[in-house]
Write a protein that binds this DNA or RNA. Structure first.
Lengths: 156, 156
DNA sequence: GGCTTATGTAACATATATAGTTGCATGAAA
DNA sequence: TTTCATGCAACTATATATGTTACATAAGCC
């Protein structure tokens, strides 16, 4: 499987979006990720499909949140991105009639499903508001000077 | 991440190896996977490095187990294959100084580590003997006729 | 109306990891 | 010395995420 940074990038982007008035353009979001507006649109399209964000075309357009941070879980974002594998171990599909293969795949699948289930559970428990909250806590320990240098990419 | 079938294939192959006298050639093992001897050698090289199998060159050579099935766990095989990602979600590496990014990555990493830890635990608990045992149980419910057709690829 | 600014989308290129293939060197038994 | 096996380098194939370019479409502004 590839190196999937979409979940972490989107969580980052959505939290910054909630801290600004008005819409955010694909361009401004792309700056946070050091990437291209088209990459942002591709990721956001999945979120829009699931009602997490909305988009507005034309002059003054862009992206806006259509849910509150506390109602967006990491699982919501993960699922909006389409079901990826999550665990990168696959079962053999050769010799499916072989009882050894079946026993091996059964054992692997049970363990993998357990791990996936736990990860889904944790992702469902964590909302973007939770994450933003832990961020606010950290921020209160900084001086005013440090605050202005927090995330340059979110300020343009 | 890619579609990694090495763990399931090797578990399959090693169990069959334990059920036969003498060595198994890369060629005969490859037949179980419907693939090429070179693919088998590449996977087995990792196991040999960790003392799970040994190899013998030349005429009459091949691969043999150097551990008992009960002393080979799924985790042993996984680790012999080199540390792959296991969970296919990655953290953003852009804007590492941004507290939002740090909070997001912290939350993701904690959840992912929990899931990985559980998977490692399960893999460590399951030996190839356990899997072969569940296979033996199934086999006893079959007629003699069915037994001869169990896994054609292991009989050549 | 025409210009500007934005999303929407297709098409293509790049990066990475697993898998598959070919070729040749090396070692050991017949 | 022939045959049969592993050892290994180099190349191709495939899949997924990512990055890039180009163009169509929509909406506000002059």
């Amino acid at each position: 499987m590839g190196i999937d940074r979409r979940l972490s990038r989107l969580a980052h982007g959505l939290i910054h979006m909630s801290q600004h008035e008005g819409v955010a353009t694909s361009q401004s979001i792309a700056k946070m990720f050091g990437t291209n507006p088209v990459v942002v649109r591709r990721m956001m399209a999945g979120l829009r499909k699931d009602g997490i964000v909305g988009s507005q075309k034309g002059h003054g357009g862009g992206w806006m949140l259509t849910k509150k941070l506390e109602n967006i879980s990491l699982l919501d974002i993960h699922q909006a991105l389409g079901n990826s594998n999550l665990v990168s171990i696959n079962l053999t599909n050769e010799q499916p009639q072989c009882l050894v293969v079946q026993a091996v795949n059964d054992a692997l699948e049970k363990s993998i499903i357990e791990a996936k289930t736990l990860l889904y559970k944790r992702f469902a428990e964590i909302s973007l508001a939770d994450i933003a909250g832990s961020f606010e806590n950290k921020k209160q320990n900084l001086t005013e000077n440090q605050k202005t240098a927090l995330c340059p990419s979110s300020q343009s």
